[in-house]
């Protein structure tokens, strides 16, 4: 139907986006790959030489490496667990008739719009601070010792902060999905004597499957790259207790000036992201095709 002319025009319109993204994807990645095989330190930039697999070996034998991968997965897993379960619960709650629903909704989605450094600093100083934080105030009022969250449970504290930021996202998407649930179906099930619990398990949950899939996919992309929250709270510590892979690479690159080592780490991060992406796509592919 489309003529040669319009087809050519369509290609021309598409070209800038494709070219830009292609360059943006290929050039830096190729450079990272090249650097990862070089001895290249920014403190000694005149002395660059071929390193073979040394950088990978170095990164692999670094005791922080496995811990950082484990921490990365813990952050992704922990936040997903909290936001999906919490999101379903809050979405169900918001779906009930109530007074002031608009305001409740606005309050619940608000954390999503708070920029990561602000969110982390608010939690660090106003909520979790062992001296002046609200949680410390509560502990003292109840007669307990205040907890020094970032020293004792650094990773857990970061998971809480990140989960707080992403809970609204999960809630909003699950609520949107919930509201498209067929009311007549629910009524029919009710008439047939299905209790609230079995209605939830056999009707609501399957209906939400697609939305849950989308939530997991999109959040994973962002959660693999958690950075600012760690930078302003624990700075990766104590030790490497709250260092994830992005943070380890940042430390190697911009604090250690080790271009080669950081690039090897970067390639490992790409591989990890791809493994997760493939695994997720496969696990959820069927769900998305519906």
């Amino acid at each position: 139907m489309a003529t040669e002319n319009t087809r050519g025009l369509a290609r021309l319109m598409l070209a800038p986006s494709v070219v830009l993204l292609l360059v943006w994807m290929v050039v830096p990645l190729a450079m990272t790959l090249w650097f990862s095989f070089q001895n290249y330190n920014l403190l000694n930039p005149a002395n660059v030489s071929w390193a073979g697999l040394f950088n990978y070996q170095y990164f692999y034998t670094d005791p922080a490496f496995f811990q950082s991968i484990w921490n990365t997965l813990l952050i992704v897993g922990g936040v997903l667990l909290i936001t999906v379960v919490g999101g379903i619960a809050i979405a169900l709650m918001l779906d009930q008739p109530m007074w002031g629903q608009g305001i409740v909704r606005i309050m619940i989605i608000s954390p999503f719009f708070v920029m990561p450094p602000v969110a982390a600093l608010i939690w660090k100083n106003m909520i979790m601070h062992p001296g002046y934080g609200v949680l410390a105030d509560i502990n003292r009022a109840l007669g307990f010792q205040p907890v020094d969250w970032f020293a004792q449970y650094p990773l857990f504290s970061i998971i809480i902060i990140v989960a707080w930021q992403w809970l609204p996202f999960a809630t909003l998407i699950l609520l949107t999905a919930l509201q498209s649930l067929d009311g007549e179906q629910v009524e029919a099930a009710e008439m047939d004597g299905a209790g609230a619990f079995s209605r939830f398990v056999y009707l609501t949950l399957p209906h939400l499957a697609r939305a849950v899939t989308v939530v997991i996919l999109i959040q994973t992309i962002f959660l693999l790259g958690v950075y600012a929250e760690i930078l302003v709270t624990t700075n990766g510590g104590p030790g490497y207790a709250s260092t994830n892979l992005p943070f380890l690479i940042y430390r190697t690159a911009l604090l250690g000036y080790d271009v080669g080592g950081a690039s090897a780490g970067g390639i490992i991060a790409v591989i990890l992201a791809n493994v997760v992406a493939i695994f997720l796509m496969r696990a959820v592919g069927k769900n998305l095709d519906k």
Binding site: L21, W24, M25, V27, P28, L29, M31, T32, F35, I221, L224, G225, Y227, L245, P246, I249, Y250, A253, L254, V259, A262, S263, G266, I267, A269, V270, L272, A273, N274, A277
Partner: peptide, 17 residues
Amino acid sequence: STKMMPAVAVLVPIYLI
């Protein structure tokens, strides 16, 4: 899929560029 590339993986080249 370009969104799935971890930002930190290209931190060094982007910084140098």
